[in-house]
Design a protein around this nucleic acid. Structure first.
Lengths: 227, 227
DNA sequence: GTATGATTCAAACAATCGTTTGAAACATGC
DNA sequence: GCATGTTTCAAACGATTGTTTGAATCATAC
């Protein structure tokens, strides 16, 4: 058996174990045991556990966000100067992620579940890492949505985008913590159905009538240091 | 200073630290240090770290779910046999939670953020514990929603309820992993605005046009063992 | 006062963690 | 063949984990 793939074996095993047990609760001995490599291999190839975590996320996340931007580029090029439909923008952002989540074979599904679970509980270094990876993507999609929804204030769009991220993360994580919809295995065909369900829910939420924010603090004045 | 409240001091400190660092990454020494009690106090009063975790969740979660059921009882009693408005049901379920999240003083906000972060990554014993705590509540609200939305299939309602849980958890967790809406502090006034925003988003999603599920597997036949 | 039970405390327990080490095994070029 | 650089391996490292222990302290009742 070729030994060059030690790195990949470690990454694959770590991805699964991180998803199942969380980052902190997963030990290097579990990972190297599952990958059938020596314990010291992690520190040899990655330097530390922390950098292993970073690499587990990076190898899929950069690709995912590239795909998202490419898809948005394609849509905007096709539309010319006309604004995109909101559903198109959402499809570019969430559709790519859900398509990746449908990939049971290549491990994409495992990663998306891991990502969904990590969004809500990032340790400090994961948080900053995710922020870096996402900054450009969020900015692009935010701008596209603002352009596509001239009637909705930008702040409201951000919030609704936030809510949508939550809905998707939760659906993808599939933790089933609440014990309903009990089949926690989401096979390929389910992924298509989930995509349709989630998309119609999101579009409904995105186009919902604007809330009436309590007037006194709608703008939330912040106390600034003296200039 | 009275020493009877050692238990409470531990619970309060654990709640905050669990929220900040996660369950696994928080050590008993951190907890007892912050609570200013002896290290052995945790094992003396709770038996183990695991049971401490359970108690941290239980003391607030049972109260929260009781409030939810009371509110639903009240609404149904007032409505007689007429079906409730979907927005009323959502308000009973999510409104109570968001009201608790607005309680910065009593620690309710800390707990709701902790809960939001835990939903998506429960360890095994937390998962079963949450399932027990939630079973009755989910059943009641699901029934109420089905009655309130005769046009929407029950399965679809479950999914949309799932999405709403995700949106709320994510919003409450406020982890800001994506580095937008950068103020991660959510003060009391923000909580009201968040409530309004989230509610209109949810109702929009709940009332969205039904998705067209890929026909072949809409019902998802499952292979059963021979009878 | 003494006696009894609950609670706190400092200290240690065994286990496990991520990491390091130095030699062994392997590959590659000459 | 030898030399060189890379990768693997078993073993150990110090640090930290949750838990336990046994004596000290406190409260309450007699």
């Amino acid at each position: 058996m070729a030994e060059i793939d030690t790195r990949i074996r470690i990454l694959d095993a770590a991805e699964v174990l991180f998803m199942e047990n969380g980052l902190d609760a997963t030990t290097l001995r579990q990972i190297t045991g599952a990958a059938d490599v020596n314990l010291a291999a992690v520190n040899y190839h990655f330097g530390s556990k922390e950098e292993l975590v970073r690499e587990v996320f990076r190898r899929r996340l950069t690709w995912l966000n590239q795909q998202r931007l490419q898809e948005l580029d394609r849509l905007e090029a096709a539309a010319g100067d006309k604004p995109l439909k909101p559903s198109q923008i959402l499809e570019a952002f969430f559709g790519v992620a859900l398509k990746m989540a449908a990939d049971t074979g290549g491990g994409g599904r495992t990663f998306m579940r891991l990502l969904g679970r990590t969004y809500t509980k990032p340790s400090e270094f994961v948080r900053t890492f995710l922020a870096e990876e996402y900054a450009a993507v969020i900015a692009r999609f935010r701008a596209a949505l603002i352009k596509a929804l001239p009637g909705v204030p930008g702040e409201e769009i951000l919030w609704r985008f936030h809510f949508m991220m939550g809905a998707m993360s939760y659906a993808l994580a599939g933790t089933d913590a609440l014990h309903f919809a009990a089949e926690d295995a989401l096979d390929d065909s389910d992924a298509e159905a989930l995509y349709a369900r989630l998309m119609s829910f999101m579009i409904g939420g995105l186009r919902a009538p604007l809330p009436t924010i309590p007037a006194k603090l709608a703008k939330r004045p912040r106390v600034k240091k003296a200039a």
